[in-house]
Design a protein around this nucleic acid. Sequence first.
DNA 1: GGGGAGTGTGAGAGCGCTCTCTGGAAGAGT
DNA 2: ACTCTTCCAGAGAGCGCTCTCACACTCCCC
Lengths: 331, 331
Amino acid sequence: MRTRPTLEKVAARAGVSRATASRVVNGSTRVAPQIRDAVNRAVEELGYVPNQAARSLVTQRADSIALVFPEPATRVFSDDPTFAGIIRGVSLEIEEADKQLVLMLIGATGGYQRAERYATNGHVDGVVIASMHGTDPLPAILARRGVPVVCSGRPTVPSSLPYVDVDNAGGAERAVRHLMERGRRRIATIAGPQDMIAGIDRLDGYRAVLRDSDRRSIVAVGDFTRESGTTAMRQLLADDPEIDAVFVANDLMALGALTALRQAGRRVPDDVALVGFDDIPAVSYAEPPLTTVRQPTVEMGRRLARMVLDLEEKAQVTLPTELVVRESTAS
Amino acid sequence: MRTRPTLEKVAARAGVSRATASRVVNGSTRVAPQIRDAVNRAVEELGYVPNQAARSLVTQRADSIALVFPEPATRVFSDDPTFAGIIRGVSLEIEEADKQLVLMLIGATGGYQRAERYATNGHVDGVVIASMHGTDPLPAILARRGVPVVCSGRPTVPSSLPYVDVDNAGGAERAVRHLMERGRRRIATIAGPQDMIAGIDRLDGYRAVLRDSDRRSIVAVGDFTRESGTTAMRQLLADDPEIDAVFVANDLMALGALTALRQAGRRVPDDVALVGFDDIPAVSYAEPPLTTVRQPTVEMGRRLARMVLDLEEKAQVTLPTELVVRESTAS
DNA sequence: GGGGAGTGTGAGAGCGCTCTCTGGAAGAGT
DNA sequence: ACTCTTCCAGAGAGCGCTCTCACACTCCCC
C-alpha cells in the first residue's frame, strides 16, 4: 500500500504553495479561479484526503461527537427500539454537519473512567448522554471539565445542564384520562424504575389524574423489561382482581403484561384495557394492537445532536408526546 | 476553561524531559522507578490526558474502527435486534482493546462517498461493514484503498475478502428437517430478499432438504420486514390452502406471518407449524412462542471486531446456528 | 584498571496540517 | 506618473506528540 498523498504533494503538483492548497481544500473564496481549479485537479488525480489528525491538532477541533450509553441502558438496548431511534436521529444530524459519531456503550468495568478520559482528551467536540438514569454522574463531570454535554432525559436532580426530554407526565396523563373516558373504573399502573426520570414522571402523571378524580392509585413497579411487565401484571391481578384498566409505563412491559393477562384468562380490552408508552413497532402488531403514547425518538436524537453541535442553543427542551389509540382500549 | 496540560508541562513539573514523560505515559519499562513515580504524580496533579490527535499524527494509527451500516440495513435497524447484537459484540471487543467505535449509518445522499472518504483519511484503523447486501461496493473499494475491512455476511459475489457469517443454509436445513420430523407434509417458505446472502442461503437450505425428500418447494418472497411476512403468508395460503408448515427466513417476517395465519383462522401449530430465523426476543413472547434458528449475533460482532483489530487472523468464518424448538412446531 | 556491554535519559526531528504575517502585483485615485 | 489601497500567494511557525539517536553512566570481566 503506497503512502497517502499529503497536502505538500498536492501543492507541488498544482505548482502552488501548501498554504494555497490548504485554502482551496477548505473552500476559501480568496483564491484565483484557475489556481483553484489546478489544485482541485491535483487533489482529484492524487486522490488526496486530508489527514484529520493533523487538522485536529492545529484546529483543536475533532469534528466528531460521542454518544454514550451507560451500562443500564445497554441491557435494554437489544430489545428496545427507543435507543435505535435516538441513534438514528443523532446520526442523521451528525451526517448533515459532516461530523462523526463515536458510539460508547459503557461496560461494567471501568467504562466510566474510560468515557471520561476519552471525552476530555479532545477527541470529541461534545457528548450526548443517552442516559435514562438521572443519577448518572458523568454529565456533571464532563460539564465541569468543559466538555459540551447534552442529556437525553431530564436529570432527576435539578441541574442547569441542557437536556432533551419528552413530555412523560403529559403523555401519562392523557393515557389515563383516555382510560377514564372509556369508562374504566379501576385503573392500575405498572410503573418504571424510580431512578429514571421516565419512570418517575410517568408515574407522577398517572397519580395526578387519579388524584384529581378522587380515585386511589394501584401501583406495581417494573424495570422496563418485558419480564418485569409480566410479573407486575400478575401481582396487580392478585392484589386487586377488579382491575379493568392498566397504564403501563413502557411498551415492553405492556407486552409482558399482555402475556400475563392472557394467561390469567382476561380479555383485552373487554376485561382489562391496556395502554403502553413509547410506540415501538411491536405493539401495533400485538394481539390486540396496543394503545400507547408515542414519543418522537428520532426527533429527540436530532435535537440532542443539534444542541451539542451548537447548531441551536443549548436548553432544557421537552418534546410533546402523542396518544395513539388502538384496540387495546376500545370500550 | 483553562487549557489542557501538555506532555511538556508534565515533564517540566516532574523535572524530566518530554521524552521520558512520554515513556512513562506509554508504559515503557525502561524507566527508573522514582522517575516513573514523579511523572505519574505530575500527570495526576495536572490531570493530564494525552492528545489523541497529536498521537495519531505521529503513530499513523487512529485507535478507532468504524462500523458501517449501509442504507438498506438502517431501515430495519429500529425493529431488528440483530443489528443491536452486532453492535454490542463489536463494542465489547473494541472496549477491551481500548479503542473507539465510530458508527456510520449511511444515509441516502452521498453516504457512500462520505464513508469512503472518512475511512481512507486515516481516521480509522479498519472498517467493519454490517452489510447484508452482498452487492455492496464499499468493501472492495476500501480494501483496494488498503483499509482493513471485514464484512458481516458473506458477499454474494465470491471474493477473497474476510467475513464473518452464520451457517444460514445449515440452520434452514435443520429447521425444515425438524418440520418434516414433526410429520408436516406441505412445507412452504417465506424467503428473504434474494440480494442478501441471508435470504439466498436460507432459501437454498430449504430447497436442499425438500429436494432430497422429493417434495416440491412452495415459495413466497418477503423483504425481512414484518409487513412483508404478513403479505407473503396470505399469498401462500391463497396459492395452496393445504399448507401445514412454513419456514420463514427471519423472525420479523415470521411474526408477520403469525398475524396473517391468525387472521385466516389457522391455528399454530395445530393447523400450520411455523419456524423463524434469528431468535429475537419477541418470538419467545409470541403466542405461541416460535421455534426459530438462533444465530450468535454478539459473537459475530466480537469476531468481526477481533479480525479487524488484527487480534485474530482475517478469514472467512461461518459461525454455527442452532435450532430452538418452541411451541409453534409442536406436533 | 581499562574496554566493552548494558541501561536509562535527553535532544531534536518531524508527523500533516492551519493560519498569521509578509510581500508583490495589480488596480484605483490624485 | 506616483502613491495608496486591495487582493492574493508564499513563507514559516507551531499544534502535541513519538521515536530515533546520541550520550552519560554504572557494572562487569579479563
